[in-house]
Amino acid sequence: MGTNALISAAASATITLLAIAEPASAQDTSAAQANNPLANTTALNFQNQYFGEIQGTDRDANQFYLRYAQPFQAFGGDWLMRATVPVNTVPLPGGDDETGLGDINIFAAYLFDTGNPAVSFGIGPQVTAPTATEDTLGSGKWSLGLANVLFNGTNPKFQWGYLLTWQASVGGDEDREDVNLGAFQPFGFYQLGQGWYLRSASVWTYNFDTDDYGVPLSLGIGKVIKTDRTVVNVFAEPQKYVWTSGDGQPDWGVFAGLNFQF
């Protein structure tokens, strides 16, 4: 898997974890539900994924992305739309780097009624557009696929779930490699109190065309501040890749972000 393919998979898979800092134990349930990536709120996120010591190059890469999530209603049901606009930096032969706009990804998840307000389940289509400003920064392909999210917030102290995505190319530059990527992001979120929390939400990627894969493990910490109008969430999550195959996989990484929930 090349660096741009790894970045594409990571961008389409990463979710946003939010928590409200509530001082009283009676408010633990509301704090847990605020961590729900399928929550009925509008979110604006500034996030950064750093990839260190990429195999085959011994260089690093970076992806900064702007994310916007918006709930809406359609076809008699509730949906959540999320759009990701990445700015990628990838290494070039000769020692230089290329920085610019990557491929924009959008998915819309239909929210099923699970019968339990603390458990959310959504699934729906996703599309990735070949918007990269340079060939090295994207796939050059239109891709379609699916996104599936599960969130379990029944425990006010610990919430868990996953985001599963898959996408395959359906058009675009015929001279570029086809896209057939899967990404799985298991996540856990442990609340320490006073707005502090531990988190693990690294993205596992698999290329169905080449059998390349990357599986990181991670543990991070964050702080949530609730204001009158928004919930501010800042976090950093170091990652270590423990199982990899194929050039373009990093040895380690850091995922960090500043999220706003309105």
Rank of each mutant, 00 (worst) to 15 (best):
78 D>H: 10
86 P>I: 05
86 P>T: 03
87 V>Y: 01
88 N>C: 04
93 P>W: 00
96 D>M: 08
97 D>L: 04
98 E>R: 00
99 T>H: 04
99 T>K: 03
100 G>S: 06
102 G>F: 04
103 D>T: 02
104 I>S: 02
105 N>K: 02
106 I>Y: 02
108 A>K: 02
110 Y>T: 04
113 D>C: 11
116 N>T: 09
117 P>S: 13
117 P>W: 07
120 S>Y: 07
122 G>I: 03
123 I>V: 14
124 G>P: 06
126 Q>D: 08
126 Q>C: 01
127 V>T: 10
131 T>L: 10
131 T>D: 09
134 E>L: 07
136 T>F: 00
137 L>Q: 00
138 G>R: 00
144 L>V: 15
145 G>F: 00
150 L>P: 01
150 L>M: 14
150 L>A: 11
153 G>S: 08
153 G>E: 08
156 P>Q: 11
157 K>N: 14
158 F>S: 04
162 Y>N: 07
162 Y>M: 09
164 L>I: 06
165 T>C: 09
166 W>F: 14
167 Q>R: 14
167 Q>V: 08
171 G>V: 06
173 D>N: 15
174 E>W: 01
175 D>Y: 07
179 V>P: 01
179 V>H: 04
181 L>P: 02
183 A>C: 11
184 F>D: 04
194 Q>W: 08
194 Q>Y: 12
198 L>Q: 02
203 V>R: 02
205 T>R: 02
206 Y>Q: 05
206 Y>K: 03
207 N>P: 00
207 N>D: 15
208 F>S: 06
